[in-house]
Simulated assay, not measured.
Amino acid sequence: MIDERFQCEILRASRTRLFNLIEATTSDIIFKIPEGFNNNIMWQIGHCITSQQRHMYMRSGLPMYISKDFMELFKIGSAPATWQINPDVIEVKQLLSETINRLESDLQSGLFINYEPFELPIGIQVKNHIHALQAAIYHEAEHSGIINMYLKLLS
């Protein structure tokens, strides 16, 4: 059986690293798009939050803890080139921790009952909220690698 609490600990550790990265990095770097790329560090972080919310909550038929506007900024296929203004850094930092806190609470309360399966771009079928949680961990690790690459390119 999957230990949901441990899975959340991993996700929380990832989110803490992203939070600390925002704190330690200038806005110029966070919002700069490296040459040859479409997105920036802020998009990578917001995209992690949005994907986790869509895959855990929306596919479970539950309301997400992010706004529709936030989702539109960071959903797959979006890019900073379409932003009218830069996203609020404070909101992103808050959502990094608030969404994992709520996820832990919602998992403990048994909120996730129904699930609309889908296939990840890597060819794996996500059949339930536990799969979605595990996929979120992989997804955030993948984007953390991209963020680290961006930091090297922009430094």
Score class of each variant (00 low, 15 high):
residue 1 M to W: 06
residue 4 E to S: 09
residue 7 Q to T: 09
residue 10 I to T: 07
residue 13 A to V: 09
residue 16 T to V: 12
residue 21 L to P: 02
residue 22 I to Y: 01
residue 28 D to M: 01
residue 29 I to W: 00
residue 30 I to D: 01
residue 32 K to I: 08
residue 32 K to T: 15
residue 34 P to C: 04
residue 37 F to R: 12
residue 42 M to G: 09
residue 44 Q to T: 10
residue 48 C to F: 02
residue 48 C to I: 13
residue 49 I to S: 00
residue 51 S to Y: 13
residue 56 M to Y: 02
residue 56 M to H: 03
residue 58 M to E: 14
residue 61 G to M: 08
residue 61 G to C: 11
residue 64 M to T: 11
residue 65 Y to V: 09
residue 65 Y to R: 13
residue 67 S to G: 08
residue 68 K to S: 11
residue 71 M to I: 08
residue 73 L to V: 05
residue 74 F to R: 01
residue 77 G to L: 03
residue 83 W to L: 06
residue 86 N to P: 10
residue 88 D to N: 13
residue 89 V to Y: 01
residue 90 I to D: 12
residue 92 V to F: 02
residue 93 K to T: 06
residue 102 R to K: 15
residue 104 E to N: 07
residue 104 E to P: 05
residue 105 S to C: 06
residue 106 D to I: 04
residue 107 L to I: 14
residue 111 L to R: 09
residue 112 F to W: 02
residue 112 F to Q: 02
residue 113 I to N: 08
residue 114 N to K: 14
residue 114 N to M: 13
residue 115 Y to L: 08
residue 115 Y to T: 05
residue 117 P to K: 08
residue 119 E to F: 07
residue 121 P to L: 13
residue 124 I to L: 15
residue 125 Q to G: 10
residue 127 K to R: 12
residue 128 N to G: 05
residue 130 I to D: 02
residue 135 A to I: 09
residue 138 Y to T: 06
residue 140 E to Y: 01
residue 140 E to A: 05
residue 143 H to P: 02
residue 146 I to D: 04
residue 147 I to F: 01
residue 150 Y to N: 03
residue 151 L to I: 05
residue 151 L to H: 03
residue 154 L to D: 01
residue 155 S to E: 08
